[in-house]
Amino acid sequence: MSMIEFHDVEKYYGKFHALKNINLTIDRGEVVTIIGPSGSGKSTLLRTINGLERITSGQLIVNDFDLADKNTDMNRIRKNVGMVFQHFNLYANKTVLDNITLGPTMVLKRPKAEVEDSARELLKMVGLEDQAAKYPSALSGGQKQRVAIARSLAMNPRAILFDEPTSALDPEMIGDVLDVMQTIAKQGMTMVVVTHEMGFARRVGDRIVFMADGQILEDESDVAGFFDHPKEPRAQEFISKILNH
């Protein structure tokens, strides 16, 4: 059962061709990592999946909704597809707890008390149960990102998109965030992860997608095989640069 399907998707910013002939199908429960040099369109691809960027042409089906159709209600997609950003994007004017409960109460219209209980459960899961009353500005980057993941999980989404979730973190914070992501992956969440964490891609990913210049150059289920013997020259070059620095 597919969760996300790209068929011949093109995306232009004015004259700039950001995504070129993207064909990609992601099944429910799959963990797909997307890697590639900066400017290769990884984040753009990810952001089209929940409609933060609109595609120029082609077909994009997410959770059985057609995103190319102008009449599709983006909020219904976003309700079911969470997103974790590089810079966290926690609501600066709300406490940690309120950051997590806002979506479920306003969008899903669930009762406040029930939502707060599950929010505290999620905070426990990400190891931040004692931070509920704090504002985001009082947290470290790693803590912020774990709150952002909890916020996303609170919506009970069908899939979560991660846009370089560890790129803005201090090295010693990265492990905690990746651990949480691994836990979610094990629970069967569909995850699309744009990342530079090759260890995570290798250990947790079911599949790896390599992008360059707006194109998907490799799409490989044998993740270990990809890292040991990338087929595409661009991928070979990228891997050797990343692993031998």
């Binding site: 309700k79 950003f85 966290f88 994007n89 600066a92 806002l102 969008v107 996303s152």
Partner: peptide, 11 residues
Amino acid sequence: GQMEGARSVGL
């Protein structure tokens, strides 16, 4: 990012 964070949960 504040707007994107809010829109991404379906607000």
